[in-house]
Design a protein around this nucleic acid. Sequence first.
DNA 1: AGCAAAATTTGAATCGATCCAACAAAGGTG
DNA 2: CACCTTTGTTGGATCGATTCAAATTTTGCT
Lengths: 360, 360
Amino acid sequence: MASSSESNTRPIRLADIAKAAGVSHGTASNVFSRPEIVREEVRERVKAAAEAMGYAGPDPKGRLLRAGKVNAIGVATTEPLSYFFDDPFARAMMAGISEACDATGAGIALVSAGNQEKLAWNIQSALVDGFILFCIEGGSRLVELTRERKLPFVALELGFDDDTVSAIGVDNVAGARLAAQHLAELGHRRFAVLALPFADGSTGLVSPEKVRTALYTGTRDRLVGYFEAFSRYGVDTAGIPVYETENDEASTRAGLETIFASAAQPTAILAMSDRIAMVAIEWLAARGIAVPGDVSVVGFDGVPDAALCDPPLTTVAQPIAEIGRRAARTILDFDGTVRRETLGVELVVRASSGPPPKAA
Amino acid sequence: MASSSESNTRPIRLADIAKAAGVSHGTASNVFSRPEIVREEVRERVKAAAEAMGYAGPDPKGRLLRAGKVNAIGVATTEPLSYFFDDPFARAMMAGISEACDATGAGIALVSAGNQEKLAWNIQSALVDGFILFCIEGGSRLVELTRERKLPFVALELGFDDDTVSAIGVDNVAGARLAAQHLAELGHRRFAVLALPFADGSTGLVSPEKVRTALYTGTRDRLVGYFEAFSRYGVDTAGIPVYETENDEASTRAGLETIFASAAQPTAILAMSDRIAMVAIEWLAARGIAVPGDVSVVGFDGVPDAALCDPPLTTVAQPIAEIGRRAARTILDFDGTVRRETLGVELVVRASSGPPPKAA
DNA sequence: AGCAAAATTTGAATCGATCCAACAAAGGTG
DNA sequence: CACCTTTGTTGGATCGATTCAAATTTTGCT
C-alpha cells in the first residue's frame, strides 16, 4: 500500500503476495491451487493482496518444473509450420488429434522450423509431454531427433520396420491391392504407378531392384499390394512404369510427362496419394485426356478434397481422423509400452475410375 | 559403471552427469549450452558420461524457469481446437502466423477447450510468451481471461473499442461500403443483409436501435459501411432487412427463410462473411433462384474457398495472411506498447454478382 | 623462475512454484 | 481436565536447469 501501485521493475511472485498478506508461501499457494482448504478470512486476505499488487496468478513456468507434466502434446514435421493448415491430409489428421485433445483439455504444440538445426533445437526444447510425428520426407531423421528427447512419441504411418517405435498406420498392402483390383476388374491391363518417395531426395523411374530396397516401407507395401493384384489378374507386370514422385506438383507432372511419352500408354494410373492423383487428373484434363474415358485414376488416402475434385476421385480411404485420435490417445495414455496399430482401409469408388476405352 | 545401465526409477539430471564426470554442474551445463568455452578433454568426458547414463539433454522444463522465455506463441479461441484446421478464415490466418513463426523459429501452441472452465484454465496455464486471440463469438470473455495472464496479447479483428488492447484488423467501414457500392452501381436497389453477431447468443432480424448498440464493433462498422453506400445511392434504407446470424449454416438458412418469406424480395444480398455468403449461394441454388441472375451475393473476408465455389464469390478481401503475420510479429517483437493496426481491404469481383433482373 | 594475462572451472544464488511432514489451534468427548 | 480429532498453517525441500563473480589453472613472455 505504501509504495506505488504498479512497479514495472520486476514481476510479482507468489512469495511477494504471501509476505504482503502475512502468510507463508505454502498457504498462499494453497489459496490458488486448493482454495477450499484455507480459511475463508485468510483466503480473502491473500486474494486481496494479489489483486492489489496486480499478481497474474501462479506462473505456469514455476508450476511446470514441480509438476513435471505440461499437458500438451507436440506435433512435429520436417515441413514448414503452414503444412498443418494447408495440406488436406495433415488437416484431417489434426482434426482427429484436436478431438482427442479437446476431450482431455490437453493443448497442441506445433513443432517445426525453417531449417534443420532449428528443427533439432525445437524438438529438444519443446515443452510437451510427448510427440506425434508426421513422417513424410525425412521421417527417419525426425524419429532419431525425437528419440533423443526420451519422451513418448508415436509415428504416423508405420513407415519404419523398427519395432521399438510406436506407430499408427494402415494396411498399405491391402489398400493398394484393393485399388489395383478395382481397376483390373474394370478391365484395365495397362497400368502406371505414381509412387511416393522410396527414400529421401530421389525421383524418377524406379527399377525393380530399387523397389525391394525401398527405405520407406509404406511406399514399398503399397507397391507390393499393387503387384499382388496385378499378378492375380494376369497382368503383365514387366512393362509397368513406376515413377517416384516427391508427392508434389512438380515431380508428379514430370512423372506424367515421362509415362505418357512412351509408346504403350497406360489406361489406368495408380497414385499413391490423393495429392498425386489430383495433380494427375488436372494434368490429364489439360492434355485433353478424358478421365475416366481415356484413363482412370485411383488415389490413396481419402482426404476430404478428393470428393470435391472434378471428376470426384476414386480412392483408398484411410480412417485419417481415427488415426489422429489414436495417436493422441497413445501419448495421453502413455503406459511405457510400444504400441503399433494397423487400421483398415476402404475403397471409395467415385467417378475417376471406369472401364478402359474400347479402342484400346 | 558399477550399477545397472538403465535404471527406470528416476530421470537423470544434469547434476548426475556432472557428478559422474567429476565436474561441477556449472561446467556440465556449459558443455550443453556453450560447448566452446569448455576444454575439449572435459567436454568429451562429460558427453561420454551423458551418453553412458542415457541423459536426454538439458530438460527444457528446468531451462524455462531460468530463461523466462518459452519461444512459443499461443493462439487462442473459444471454438474447439479443430476450428484451426477446419475454418478457411482461421486457416488462412494461421498460414500467416506460421510464416512469421517459422522465420524466427518460434513454436505455436494452440489453446482452446471443450468448456469454459477448461478454457480459462488452459489460458492461465499455457506455456507461451504471448497470445493471439481469435475474437469471434465470446471474444470479450476471451480478452478478459487473457488480460489476467498479464502477457502480451493481440486481438484479431478490432472488435473492441478498448484502446488498451492491441489489435489488428481491417477497415470494415470502407470494405462494407465497397461491397454495397458495387451492387448499387450494378443497379440493385432492394437489399438484404446477413450480419455477423451483434452480441453473444442472439439471432434474428435486427431493429435499427439494436444496430447502434452493437457490442461487436466489427459488425457495427460493416453495417455502417453498407448504409453509407445505400444513402449515397439514394437507396431506401427503411425496408432493408438485417438478419443477425451466428456465422453458421443453421442461422444463415433461417435468415434466408425469413428474408425471402417477405413480400419485397431482395435482388442483392450482402453477407458479412464468406461463410455466410457461401451458405446463401447454396440455399438459393437449392431454391432454384439463379445467382447472380435473380439475386446477387457479395461476401466479406476473401477466404481462398470463395474463389472455388460455384459461382465464384464476389467478396471484400482482407489481407488475411498479412494480418496473421503482423499479429505474430506484434507478439514476437513486443515492446510494451499497445499496437493497433488497420489494414486495407480490396473488392474482388467474381461471378456471384451482376445486374439485377430486368423484370424487377 | 617469476609474473601478468588469459582460459577454465567452481559453487552459490536464482528462476517460481508445489508438496508434505510437522506443528498449532480449535472443537469434541468421557 | 486430559486427550483425541479435526482443521489450518508453516517453512524447508524439491523440481532441473542457468548464471556469474570469484577461484583456480594455464599459457605466454621476459
